[in-house]
Design a protein around this nucleic acid. Structure first.
Lengths: 144, 144
DNA sequence: CAGTATCCAGCTAGATACTG
DNA sequence: CAGTATCTAGCTGGATACTG
């Protein structure tokens, strides 16, 4: 009976794994906010960048503004991220039919609350990152 | 002068991008907690699983216990994750030299506080995920 | 201006086999 | 029991070119 055994164990593991995943609802959110560009877009629209002049609170931004702020993001990633966030109701996409079309993005209430969550993360990071880094180098030194 | 132009633009973009990254310290943390298995290990050691009997607060767990709880995680991923967390001072790794060696993992104070952060995330997820899902299906329906 | 479409390199994570 | 080592498939993200 060696034929089905391995496959069965694998299938069983798959199920248990999914069950544990389902039991941990933060996974859903994490898949959303753990994305590199999602966080950066959130920062940008939330006004954390402060390099554009205004700072502190949410603002509507044009595609090209975001693109300029997040230099290094390809259009592909930017558009993909923006679409995903729009799909989830985190940002609004407003098309103004001017001559060359104008598109602005803005955080929704949902997006603002998500931005708040990411601020909580940022706070933790600022308070503990130094300790983490210290531990990390200590660990690396210990390992001959 | 078309030779250096493209490369220069690319280099410039790289710098700006990094600058914005650096300005957003949550990236560091996100790289840590956004990992699938990190969160699950955090859940396990934090006692969120509740499938082992005890529930609610932190507990020391053996490698095999974690492995059983997170069925579906390969040893590679589990070990890798555990090592990274140990390196960052989030968990402790205790080796007891019994006959077959016994290794237990436990959250440190730092790990507990990180676990709290992830609980904040979980709360947001529980409060808003339904809305996100609604928006998402609405968006998908709209797209003919 | 604000995208869409396509192709491809690199990294990650899973499978598998072996060890103190 | 608690790993380490190695190979590879698949997905993600970046480059590039084209469009309403």
């Amino acid at each position: 009976m060696t034929t089905t055994n391995a496959a069965q164990r694998r299938a069983r593991a798959k199920v248990e794994y999914n069950a544990f995943l389902a039991a941990c609802p933060s996974r859903q959110l994490l898949d959303r906010i753990s994305d590199k560009w999602v966080v950066l877009v959130l920062c940008a629209l939330g006004g954390d960048a402060a390099q554009t002049g205004a700072a502190g609170d949410a603002m509507a931004m044009r595609y090209s503004e975001i693109s300029r702020l997040l230099a290094g993001a390809s259009q592909k990633m930017l558009t993909q991220t923006l679409r995903a966030l729009e799909r989830d109701g985190v940002v609004t996409r407003t098309v103004t039919p001017t001559v060359p079309v104008t598109v602005t993005y803005e955080l929704t209430d949902l997006g603002l609350s998500l931005h708040e969550v990411s601020r909580g993360l940022r706070n933790w990071a600022q308070n503990h990152m130094e300790e983490v880094l210290t531990r990390r180098t200590a660990y690396d030194d210990r390992a001959s």
